[in-house]
Design a protein around this nucleic acid. Structure first.
Lengths: 220, 220
DNA sequence: TTTCGAAATTAGGCATGTCTAAATAAATGA
DNA sequence: TCATTTATTTAGACATGCCTAATTTCGAAA
């Protein structure tokens, strides 16, 4: 059962909106996400139901089937692998890759994706810090570490803070180390455990071990 | 005037069958090449005529326009660059690449193809030995200028260096001004002709007039 | 519990790109 | 030259994927 590009895009949107099949999704939600109208969505839901990637009962709602999840995760896997390729090999900025990856994710070739994965050295995360499902659709649990525990040259994305006092958040905002920022450890001072950090491939900043200990990073 | 994937495929077939516009092509020839029926071809020829990539008079024949040739060559260029990528980087065998390249050639992104070309080191032939059209048969080819001759706010892409000594290349690599990098002139010092350059919308760097004189830029 | 409004679906239309069958133009040869 | 064959085009269908407008269903408020 092959899916068209449009069907793959709808399925991916449904997967994301439902948080992997956990939450329920409305026709209007999907229409908003896909920039289409509710009528088009109803049409598509019928087709996706016939192809058995969702279970669809009109007016009641839908549920992704196991087959559907596999398909969606496969598309997400391709999208994120291409993003890694674009950033690491073709020097795209991490915010330039989405549109192109949206096209590349619909190329059909199992061999291509296997080889690309190998060529990129089996990356576990894309340039935005999102995990890349393996070829069986399994997603690796996201290892959050304290920034002060990272080694030189390791990279990641700031995903949370331990101390969320206003003062601390103000400080982070001021230095540009917001939630979501991608960071790289440039240097570590052994003496006091302070760090030199590259933020978003642009700014470098120094922080004490105490500050770094309050920042949780998703390693990539 | 954008072409659909189907239109690009017809145009490419016409270009090949006509040997670049030299020979005449019949509706049946095209139908055979495309694995479709003559009726479908007639339909498509009308559309391609309306989009002015061919000059079409029914029952008489067709001729590719200059615009059409440009489009066809661009598609062929993309196809062959992807073939080089698949063989050289992903270890595809030369006879495994065609089907995948048929899909990849329809990805729309000028930046992607520029970067891919650079990444592959500007190959002149694909794995089958067919020549790869260069970027400038397609749109109006722009002259390469020395970086030191550009004015403030002008943009372009580094395409070559005059001095290719190892030391100079090491320097370029160190500052991030690799072949393929997109640059913008932020400032020029009149006194000594040195420049402030924005590289890939991220890093700024200063360089002397002498260094800039060794860098060739394709203006955009 | 009944009604009313929001959400969802159906009806019908349009564009693309394909097909088969019918019609028409061009080419060929007696 | 004119009839016949061949090439090509048109006519009309169908599938996909989108739209607007009309209709149906559900659920929440009275």
């Amino acid at each position: 059962m092959d899916l068209t590009t449009a069907e793959e895009n709808y399925l991916k949107a449904i997967y994301h909106l439902s948080d992997g099949g956990k939450k329920s999704v409305s026709t209007n939600d999907i229409a908003a996400e896909m920039n289409t109208k509710a009528a088009s969505v109803s049409d598509m839901l019928r087709k996706l139901g016939e192809k058995e990637v969702i279970e669809y009962r009109k007016y009641y709602g839908l549920q992704i089937t196991e087959t559907g999840k596999r398909h969606a995760l496969q598309t997400i896997r391709k999208h994120r692998l291409w993003e890694v390729f674009l950033v690491e090999k073709l020097n795209f900025a991490w915010d330039e890759v989405h549109e192109v990856a949206e096209q590349l994710e619909h190329i059909h070739s199992t061999l291509l994706i296997q080889r690309l994965d190998s060529y990129l050295n089996y990356p576990k995360f894309d340039p935005h810090g999102d995990p890349i499902p393996d070829e069986f659709g399994d997603v690796r649990s996201r290892p959050r570490v304290q920034l002060n525990e990272m080694d030189i040259d390791q990279t990641g994305q700031i995903v949370a803070v331990k101390d969320s006092s206003a003062a601390f958040l103000r400080y982070l905002d001021k230095v540009g180390a917001y939630i979501g920022a991608r960071i790289k450890v440039l240097d570590k001072v052994e003496f006091d455990g302070s760090l030199e950090i590259l933020v978003d491939q642009k700014k470098t900043l120094f922080m004490s071990k105490d500050v770094a200990g309050n920042i949780l990073v998703l390693q990539s």
